[in-house]
């Protein structure tokens, strides 16, 4: 795939010798493909960076993307694809910035009528393909890490642990609980118990549409783990269908306190703590 030293030298000379013409033509091709979503000046700067990196690598001998002296070239390509991925460009729009070099080279090679012209063009073309693939790979990697980051942020967002009262924290669970999310909820709830020194936790599952064996197991494990740490969990908001599923699945909730609503659960905890909760207005003697 890689160019040998002579070919690299010729490529560097060709690109270096017509620097102005090359960057101009290259920028124009890329600009038309992106339809004005990046400014001409910005594109020109990016193209100049790539141009410099390729010429630089060519002058130092055989261009091989995996070689030591191609580090600058790799960095230039990665930077381009990272930028494009973050700005929301598609994979095609990103790699076309590299493949545009083929058109530029075709013009140049046609102009110089040497015997090796065809041979060189095929070799250069292969190199451009390689550069394009590298760019595509790093584009995909950037996108994957973006997705992973977002998934993590979403998990954080979807599992708030709130302090309800002195010594009482609650997790209102909303949406489907899968294994990964259940684990995050469990860890965060237990950590909050430690951080706030709260001996009571209420897990409210009003917003959970369905409970399967695995989810129920996760909730049970959380309750047992909290107990090991010296805290009590109360489960609230079990809807009729879920109660039926729990019984049908034969899941044993044992001696875990369950309450119909979050309010009932809080009242239960406060009563355990000896806090009086007034249900009615106290009668006043006149």
């Amino acid at each position: 795939m890689a160019l040998n030293a002579e070919e690299s030298g010729r490529l560097a000379a060709l690109l270096g010798g017509h620097a102005e013409q090359v960057t101009q033509r290259w920028t124009d091709i890329v600009a038309s493909s992106l339809r004005g979503r990046l400014s001409h000046a910005e594109l020109r700067r990016q193209v100049e960076d790539l141009h410099r990196a390729i010429v630089g690598a060519g002058e130092q001998g055989a261009i091989d993307l995996s070689a030591e002296h191609a580090a600058e070239l790799r960095a230039a390509l990665s930077e381009l694809s990272r930028g494009r991925a973050r700005q929301g460009f598609s994979a095609t729009e990103t790699t076309i910035s590299i493949f545009a070099l083929k058109d530029v080279l075709a013009d140049l090679v046609q102009g110089s009528a040497t015997a090796d012209a065809l041979h060189d063009y095929v070799a250069f073309s292969k190199l451009v393909d390689e550069l394009g693939l590298f760019t595509f790979e790093s584009f995909v990697r950037t996108r994957e890490s973006l997705i992973a980051d977002q998934a993590e942020q979403l998990l954080e967002l979807s599992t708030p642990v709130v302090k309800l009262w002195e010594g009482v924290v609650a997790v209102p669970l909303v949406g489907t609980l899968d294994s990964a999310r259940a684990q995050v909820v469990m860890e965060r709830l237990l950590q909050t118990l430690v951080d706030t020194g709260s001996p009571y936790a209420i897990i409210d599952i009003t917003g959970v549409p369905a409970v399967d064996t695995q989810v129920a197991q996760h909730i049970l494990k959380t309750v047992v783990a909290a107990r090991l740490m010296g805290a009590d969990c109360i489960i609230s908001g079990i809807r009729p269908q879920i109660a039926q599923t729990i019984v049908a699945l034969g899941i044993e909730f044992g001696d875990i306190a369950t309450k119909a609503s979050l309010a009932d659960a809080l009242r239960h905890v406060l009563r355990l703590n000896g806090v009086e909760t007034a249900r009615r207005q106290p009668r006043r003697d006149v």
Binding site: E187, L193, A226, L228, G230
Partner: peptide, 14 residues
Amino acid sequence: VVVGMRPAVAITLV
């Protein structure tokens, strides 16, 4: 009374 068990330890014990 055993006090101060870390969350990760509790999860592992379970």
